[in-house]
Amino acid sequence: MPDNNSPWGNKGGGGKKPGQNPWGSQGKPDRNRPKPGEGSPDLDNVIQGFKNRVRTGGPRGPRGSGGGNPNGPLQKFGPFGIAAIIGLFFLLMTTIYTVDQQEEAVVLRFGEFNRTAAPGLNFKLPSPFETYIKEKTRVVTKTTIGGNDNTSLMLTGDENIVDIDFTVLWRINDLKNYIFEVDEPAVALKAVAESAMREIIGRSELENIITTERLNTTIAVRDLMQATLDEYGAGIEVVEVQLQKADAPDGRVVDAFRDVVDATQEKETLINEATAYQNTVVPQARGAAAKIIQDAEGYKGQVVAEAKGEAERFTLILGEYKAAPRVTRQRMYLETMEDVYKDADKMMLDTEPGSGVVPYLPLNELNRNRGAN
């Protein structure tokens, strides 16, 4: 049976001899072509087999048959079926999505809020039934306000002008409200921050703003911003407000206010030094006073106790004297002499007067002992 799939007709018959090429060699052998039976593949059959495989999706038939598998795995669906399968595959792929650790996602069903998705692998209905929006809710965003005359110049409570530059640190704390409640939340945040700063500055004096009340100003602005954003339902948490610059407008006034700031800082330094000195000296003085009081209390107790002891002793001696006056007088005399001479150098002479013997007194020893004492 002729091979109709070959572009050159029947290889083995049809009026052409074996080895005849398609360009009409008229039976003359081609020197560059391998001879039949040497085992080299025929180029025409290789090309034809590749075409059959692509067209049918199956393996090429036996060599020389020129045909493939007419019932390939995708051929039975046709081009529209293949397109439908590919579309279904991509549609199923839209049901799976991931949310990063720093993000949250809201799922919309037919454009309306349905639920909030946590970080990790999540599933939803295929698009366009459900879609999702992701935002970074655990990242602090920085917004800088100021830098030009329109937003940085503000009027203070004492009718002065101050040049303010500040930064707002914020993050998303309610993704649903952040997306649906306020149009362009970042723009709204900037407007609320500028308005809150102008209101707080309008209540304060210029000198306090640029000197000692900078921290209190930022805290008041943060609280007012948070209250306003909560009232709007913006889903934003104000983490911190940082005051970058608070100066008088450029000109000679700036130098004067800088001198005021320097003087105020020097004043605060001197006050801190005086306070430190006070905290050192006052406790020492109080300790010394307490010591003196305690010594006086101790001396008082000692004197009172000694006086009471002497009075008690005198009372006891008086009782003894009434009982035996002579003995008591003798005893009192001896005790008094003992107290008087107990630290003196003494020498006892046991001789009868008028015996004619002159006593020897060791004056050198007495003088040496007196000098040592």
Rank of each mutant, 00 (worst) to 15 (best):
Q284M: 15
I133Y: 00
P73R: 07
R370C: 04
T211I: 01
E199R: 10
G27D: 11
G72H: 03
T167N: 10
A324N: 15
V162M: 01
Q48R: 07
R258E: 13
V192W: 01
Q75V: 12
G233K: 02
R31Y: 11
P353R: 03
R138L: 13
V221P: 04
E266S: 13
I292H: 02
N52F: 00
F80K: 14
V327I: 05
G233F: 00
V239A: 00
G111M: 10
T351R: 14
A285W: 10
Y178G: 03
L270V: 11
I82G: 05
I145W: 03
A289D: 07
A186V: 14
S25Q: 01
I145C: 00
A290R: 10
P128Y: 09
I292F: 07
D30P: 00
T211E: 04
E320W: 11
E184G: 08
N177C: 07
G301T: 11
D262P: 03
G301C: 07
N208S: 15
N71P: 01
N114V: 06
A305N: 04
T280V: 10
I164A: 02
D223T: 12
V254P: 05
T167L: 02
G78F: 05
S127Y: 09
E103S: 15
L169K: 13
G37D: 08
T315Y: 11
D262V: 15
N69R: 03
V261P: 04
K124Y: 05
M225P: 07
D339A: 15
Q26T: 03
P283N: 09
I47Q: 04
L121K: 14
G371M: 11
E104K: 13
T269N: 14
F80G: 09
D339G: 12
F123D: 11
R31P: 13
E103T: 06
E365D: 14
M1Q: 02
V282H: 07
A191L: 00
V254S: 12
V140D: 14
R203A: 11
